[in-house]
Write a protein that binds this DNA or RNA. Structure first.
Length: 646
RNA sequence: GCCGAUGUAGCUCAGUUGGUCAGAGCAGCUGAUUUGUAAUCUGCAGGUCGGGGGUUCGAAUCCCUUCAUCGGCUCCA
């Protein structure tokens, strides 16, 4: 007998060699139907793997990451099996479970393509296989045998993977006629996979290396119940409606014109109004916190970027330098503001008593992003950063860093922006040549970031390999409507630019010292920030940000004169932008959310025209009663103040 | 940049195997109507079917090419 301990601390004796599914069955048959994998002594195992000694066991259901993971990973195998039966000779790369579903990278073979229209056939074959209730079996295999097996199949991808594995750790999983190199774990059988949807097909480089062959990646998702799949598909449909590209068009916020150029957003009046509101909101906060606003040109001499090191790193993949009538003179569109700010710092001598110096600019920058990478407002070729740089003494670094975390959290809170992940982005230890600067400085900077985040009790995740080439950073990541991750705010420590630009200050010892530089943005870019705000709120903006704060609706043309009067007063109030809508098809506009996104609806009828009032309705909340015009202005003003003061 | 898909009016989309296939709804503009919040009625106007080449007696439809968009990959200072 062996002793199995459960997460709640309780323990039971079982026969040696029992497996997790049998344990679950003995607890309750209902449970057994719902578990998909188990953690045995800290390792995630198949349910059918025998347990031969005392162990701590945690059973995983759908609700657990590990449960879903086993479910989707098994689904990837199910798909691979279907593919092999449909496309004999097809070769397989890797096929993991992901956050939502799974994929498999495959090489269908020379001259064969798999496209969207093939997915249904594959899906049907998967369903057929799944319904046969195929058992997943696990087999340990020697490296030599594994190599022989996959060489015989002619699968160079799997043999490459096996070559990198340690002999004695290699396992195969099979179901039906299909066998795959795999670490597991898997479901006991294909039986629980009831609902299957292959979502898309895409290209993906083998091992993520753009110099290697592009495989075909097939994405899919599966569920234990059809209803869950249906709900997921509904969710995707709903998410499409929140897409900022769609809402941006509906609300006439921004526009892309191929004539202007891809990735170059045109801000329409209403979008520009939102942008402007964001800028003035943040400017007010920055001034209170001791930032100095600066302005720098949109171009700079190539030498500036050679000095900063950006030219060497990104020159070839940037908008190329423009020349002038002067021989040998070259300028570039600025891809970042930092070098300009360094030169501003250098314009005057500095004492330690002045530091930290905080320089801010809403700086528009231009980056030649790869054409396939452009995406609405979230990835563009010209965008405006709410950029700022802190120049401080090494001793001040941590405090400065913490103060920026405070600022960031403050702004996000005011904006009611809660759904973000703070990510500490460090160097990739396997790729150290990507980075410039001394190990010592990197070490120091990384420690400072981790410490500052810790002292601020910020919940963070640490990701290696995501640092900037000149320094580590703390990034604030958010998800868009369909779950893609975007970086908004970022705080970056930089010892490199101060050195390259020879920045100095006089210390109390009357010696020259080098300041440390912190780069930071809060919104990231106005473009991306607006996009994320739109997707988070389905295009509804808080009152203070909204381009139109209210819509004016006269019941009848009889009141048009009065309405025009009201409109003028309110629009001139400098606080309340109104749109005038005398259309009779107001119902349709409301249904289409065109007007529902505007915070207030003002109705004018006989009574209102007589009394010089408007009937105020807050969208989604209902009647606020009748108000005199100036009452309404004051009301809006106080509402805005309340929102911003928070 | 790479793989795959898509491109018909401002928007959403129909257009069967190449042959009255240049259409509809919404938006817009005309008139009429005046209604307290999810579609009032009439009429009109709108497109070199993304651009360019080709095949054909004939191309929105087939082929090539180019531009743009979408989903991924790579990248993201």
């Amino acid at each position: 007998m062996i002793k199995i301990t459960f997460p709640d601390g309780s323990a039971r004796e079982f026969k040696e060699g029992i497996n997790s599914i049998q344990i679950a069955e003995q607890i309750s048959p209902g449970l057994a139907r719902e578990v998909y994998s188990a953690t045995v002594n800290g390792e995630v195992w198949d349910l059918i793997r025998p347990i031969t000694r005392d162990a701590a066991v945690k059973l995983h259901k759908w609700e657990d990451e590990q449960g879903k993971h086993a479910f989707w990973h098994s689904s990837a195998h199910l798909m691979a099996g279907a593919l092999e039966s449909l496309y004999p000779g097809i070769k397989f790369g890797i096929g993991p479970a992901i956050e939502m579903g799974f994929y498999y990278d495959v090489d269908p073979g020379e001259g064969r393509v798999i496209t969207d229209s093939d997915l249904e056939v594959i899906e049907n074959r998967m369903k057929e296989h799944a319904s046969r209730n195929l058992i997943f079996t696990r087999k340990e295999i020697s490296k030599k045998d594994a190599l022989d097996l996959f060489r015989k199949k002619g699968d160079e991808y799997k043999t490459e993977l096996i070559n990198e594995l340690q002999d004695g750790t290699i396992t195969l999983y099979s179901h039906g006629d299909f066998t795959d190199l795999c670490r597991g774990p898997h479901l006991p059988s294909t039986e629980p996979i009831k609902a299957i949807k292959l979502t898309s097909v895409a290209g993906a480089y083998w091992r993520g290396d753009e110099k290697r062959k592009m495989l075909t990646r097939i994405y899919g998702i599966t569920f234990p119940k059809q209803k869950m799949l249906d709900e997921y598909l509904v969710f995707l449909e709903e998410a499409k409606k929140r897409d900022h590209r769609r809402i941006g068009r509906e609300l006439e916020l921004f526009h892309f014109s191929p004539k202007v150029g891809m990735g170059l957003p045109l801000w329409l009046p209403k979008g520009a109004e939102i942008r402007q509101n964001l800028i003035s909101f943040l400017t007010g906060i920055l001034k209170k916190r001791g930032y100095k606003i600066v302005t720098t040109p949109h171009i700079g001499n190539v030498d500036l970027y050679k000095t900063s090191g950006h030219y060497e790193k990104y020159g070839a993949s940037s908008f190329q330098p423009m020349s002038t009538p002067q021989e040998g003179e070259q300028f570039m569109l600025k891809p970042m503001n930092c070098p300009h700010h360094c030169e501003i710092y250098n314009a005057t001598p500095h004492s330690y008593k002045e530091l930290p110096i905080k320089m801010a600019e809403f700086g528009t920058v231009y980056r030649y992003e790869q054409s396939g990478e452009l995406h609405g407002l979230t990835r563009v070729r010209s965008f405006t950063q709410d950029d700022a740089h802190h120049f401080c003494t090494p001793e001040q670094l941590r405090e400065e860093f913490k103060s920026i975390i405070d600022l960031m959290l403050y702004v996000y809170r005011v904006m009611n922006f809660n759904d973000y992940t703070a990510q500490i982005s460090l160097r990739d230890p396997d790729n150290m040549e990507k980075y410039i600067g001394t190990d010592e400085n990197w070490e120091k900077a990384e420690q400072d970031i981790i410490a500052a985040a810790g002292e601020k009790n910020l919940k963070t995740v640490v990701i290696k390999g995501e640092a900037a080439f000149y320094g580590p950073k703390l990034d604030f990541m958010v998800k868009d409507a369909i779950g893609r991750n975007w970086q908004l705010g970022t705080i970056q420590v930089d010892y490199n630019l101060p050195e390259r630009f020879n920045l100095t200050y006089n210390g109390s010892d009357n010696q020259k010292h080098q300041p440390v530089m912190i780069h930071r943005t809060i919104f990231g870019s106005l473009e991306r920030f607006v996009a994320v705000m739109i997707e988070n709120n389905s295009g509804k903006f808080p009152l203070w940000l909204a381009p139109d704060k209210a819509v004016l609706l006269p019941i009848s043309e009889k009141f048009n004169d009065y309405a025009a009067n009201v409109l003028e007063i309110l629009n001139n109030s400098d606080i309340c932008t109104l749109i005038d809508d005398r259309s009779e098809k107001i119902g349709k506009k409301i249904r289409d959310n065109e007007l529902k996104r505007i915070p207030y609806l003002l109705v004018i009828g006989e009574k209102e025209a007589e009394n010089g009032t408007v009937s105020v309705r807050k969208q989604g909340e209902g009647d606020k009663g009748s108000m005199k015009i100036d009452e309404f202005v004051n009301f809006i003003r106080s509402e805005i103040n309340r929102e911003i003061a928070n």
